[in-house]
């Protein structure tokens, strides 16, 4: 991958960081030009403090990093369209707002189309320097907003769409979405019965579907690697046309994980291969994040209450193996253990 990704390679000289259990890098060691956006005291704080997100909310963290990076990349000239969902609700309890960007919430399923309209208006008004970011959760993106998203991709409208994927409808109280992983317990896929938890369907990879539209840029990212997220957002804002970033954001409430474990759980998803981190340009994969310390899928699953029914006195070895197979397929498909791929 390119320089500055994960803070692993920077500028002409390769700087190595040896920190245990975290990807947070010592910005003081870096050249100012490649320090993280969040380390800058003059950062925008696009999603300002004081909002009502839960402790350990992955989405709030991801959104703040992503939008601040987009603001830096555009010299603070972005307009944001937001789908209905946790992010919208916790950020705008009337009459307060945490947004330090021009921000519009319309509906659950139309953020991509609203963003298209904003982009069209800006174009016709000659405001070429103002850029558009749309964002939503997995429900607003993978399910109810999917038609609008595909339309926006197909037309190659000048919008960066960011999906914060916490793998279920958390705003309404943890119900299954089509991003909910196989076996996960939600309130509409309860952990009871012969095969507790979510069905073992085929899943739905919106990043791959986005790539099938042949748009200029598609990437996945995770709050376990915020420098990588910043890098990808900044890269996306350097391009025009439809762009898509899919960010994995643990939800302590919905996943049954400790608020203090958000980053750890997100990292286990990467290190097990269950959440492949990659980027693609014009429909072709151009970079992937190599797994550093491969862990079994079980390590990821056991960290979360939503998979608890798979374990206990009589572990459901068949379905645990099935999930491991999913991880193995990701590892093969994206070359997550390949030599030469930088981690």
């Amino acid at each position: 991958m390119e320089a500055a990704t994960n803070g692993q390679t920077v500028g002409p000289a390769r700087v190595r960081f040896y920190q245990t259990g975290t990807f947070t890098v010592g910005n003081r060691l870096l050249d100012v030009s490649v320090q993280s956006v969040q380390s800058d005291p003059r950062r925008n704080n696009s999603l300002n403090s004081g909002h009502r997100a839960c402790q350990g909310c992955g989405e709030a963290l991801g959104a703040r990093y992503a939008l601040d990076a987009a603001m830096r990349a555009t010299k603070n000239r972005i307009v944001v369209a937001n789908a209905t969902g946790c992010l919208e609700v916790f950020s705008t309890p009337y009459p307060e707002s945490s947004w330090r960007v021009p921000w519009l919430h319309s509906l659950f399923g139309n953020a991509p189309a609203v963003a298209t309209g904003i982009a069209a208006a800006l174009k016709v008004k000659g405001k070429d320097d103002v850029r558009v970011v749309a964002q939503g959760g997995d429900g607003g993106t993978v399910d109810i907003g999917f038609g609008c998203l595909s339309g926006m991709f197909e037309r190659n409208d000048d919008v960066l769409y960011i999906c914060y994927d916490n793998e279920a409808y958390m705003n309404t109280g943890v119900q299954r979405s089509s991003a909910t992983p196989a076996g996960a317990k939600t309130n509409t896929t309860p952990g009871v019965g012969e095969e507790p938890g979510n069905v073992f369907g085929q899943g739905k990879s919106v990043p791959l579907i986005a790539m099938a539209h042949g748009i200029p840029y598609v990437a996945t990212a995770s709050v376990a690697d915020l420098r990588d997220l910043e890098y990808k957002v900044q890269k996306a804002m350097g391009l025009h046309g439809a762009r898509y970033i899919h960010v994995h954001v643990p939800c302590p409430l919905g996943w049954g994980s400790a608020p203090s474990d958000t980053i750890r759980v997100a990292r286990l998803a990467i290190e097990s291969g269950l959440f492949p981190v990659f980027e693609a340009e014009w429909g072709e994969v151009t970079g992937r994040r190599r797994i550093r310390d491969l862990v079994p899928a079980q390590a990821y699953l056991e960290a979360q209450g939503r998979f608890r029914h798979l374990f206990g006195k009589h572990p459901d070895t068949r379905r645990i193996a099935w999930i491991q197979d999913i991880a193995n397929r990701n590892i093969r498909r994206f070359g997550l253990l390949d030599e030469g791929v930088q981690s």
Binding site: L104, S106, V114, I118, A120, A121
Partner: peptide
């Protein structure tokens, strides 16, 4: 909606 809110 997006266009109108953005001034068009």
């Amino acid at each position: 909606i997006g266009a109108s809110a953005a001034g068009a």
